[in-house]
Design a protein around this nucleic acid. Structure first.
Length: 321
DNA sequence: ATTATTTGACCCAT
DNA sequence: ATGGGTCAAATAAT
């Protein structure tokens, strides 16, 4: 994975922590994809398991990487990076040694064009799946050489939080029904108005509604769980669970001297699962332009993908399962 | 010039 | 009041 260009003045351990978090964001995005479109992924359950373990290890590893600061707080310049996302519309003008430096940005007043080198991900699906994000349709157009229109969606929180995520939905076939869904840019918003999409819906919910049990690696029909199965919202605090809610239940207070080790709470993935994971990561359809890691600086901390996945994982820490 | 994409005002449902 | 869809116009890319 190619790391973004960080200021040279950042200490190695801080850079490492940043890279750990960046890697975690990338993995959670991939795990989200396999959960949203399991029929398109030839993934082995053990590879999912390994991926989950790796993701859960991220807070621990990034903490371990940064703990050599001892009494120095880990002051990642999240807000500054967030506003310094490299794009046509935002220009980084200055960055000096201090992580607290406020980076002046120039915002172009109006651009009707998406940045050329933005991250994209394309999926073809027979059902329009609720991907867990809030979208607002902002346009629809008949496309040349196609009988069917293309719909344009932007993140609901674009005005609130400046989230640049957009998606396009276009029907490409009637029989069998097929839609091409193209996502542009990662979500940078923190809002999770709806539960993470661990419950997968289709037009035929009785047949396809299911849950993924990380411990047994089995897909469970929702109806098997009965009507009292808790909703995700019960586990979330303001939609975004804290790390402590991820790693500790109520009866296990956080001990900062011995950080929670997720590998002891989730069935340990065999080493082979990591290689399996790598193999299907190679197959997945993320499309990134050259020399672009698919991550904006701001994604490292505030990625909704990470938050969403954190919610998902927190949910499955519920003893109900 | 043509086409694709985005903005912003407007309308409607809740 | 608020949120989401529609649509004409503006803007960018080719």
């Amino acid at each position: 994975m190619e790391s973004p260009s960080w200021p040279e003045s950042l200490p190695d351990n801080r850079l490492k922590a940043i890279q750990e978090l960046t890697q975690g964001q990338d993995w959670t995005t991939k795990l989200q994809e396999v959960l949203w479109w399991p029929e398109e992924m030839e993934s082995d359950p053990t590879s999912i398991d390994g991926l989950v373990v790796q993701i859960l290890m991220i807070p621990y590893r990034s903490w371990a990487s940064s703990c050599s600061f001892k009494n120095e707080a880990l002051e990642l310049p999240t807000c500054d990076f967030h506003s310094s996302v490299s794009s046509d519309t935002q220009k980084l003008e200055k960055y000096n040694d201090s992580p607290k430096t406020v980076i002046p940005v120039t915002i172009k007043k109006r651009s009707a064009k998406r940045r050329k080198n933005s991250w994209t991900s394309t999926k073809v699906t027979s059902v329009l799946i609720d991907d867990g994000h809030a979208w607002r349709k902002y346009g629809q157009k008949e496309i040349l050489n196609s009988k069917r229109h293309r719909s344009y969606y932007r993140c609901t929180y674009k005005s609130d939080q400046g989230c640049q995520a957009t998606k396009q939905v276009q029907m490409i076939e009637d029989k069998p029904l097929k839609y091409r869904i193209t996502y542009f840019s990662n979500h940078t918003c923190n809002n999770l108005q709806r539960p993470p999409p661990i419950i997968l819906h289709s037009p035929y919910p009785r047949e396809n509604s299911m849950l993924l049990n990380f411990e047994t690696k089995e897909l469970i029909n929702k109806k098997q769980l009965g009507p009292n199965f808790p909703s995700v919202k019960q586990e979330l605090n303001d939609g975004v669970p804290s790390l402590s809610s991820l790693g500790h239940n109520q009866s296990t207070p956080c001990n900062y001297n011995s950080p929670w080790d997720p590998s002891t709470h989730v069935s340990q993935a065999p080493k082979e699962s990591l290689s399996l994971m790598s193999s299907w990561l190679d197959r997945e359809e993320m499309v990134s332009p050259p020399a672009y890691s698919g991550l904006d600086h701001g994604d490292i901390i505030s990625s909704s993908s990470y938050s969403s996945m954190a919610g998902t994982l927190g949910y499955h820490m519920n003893p109900m399962l």
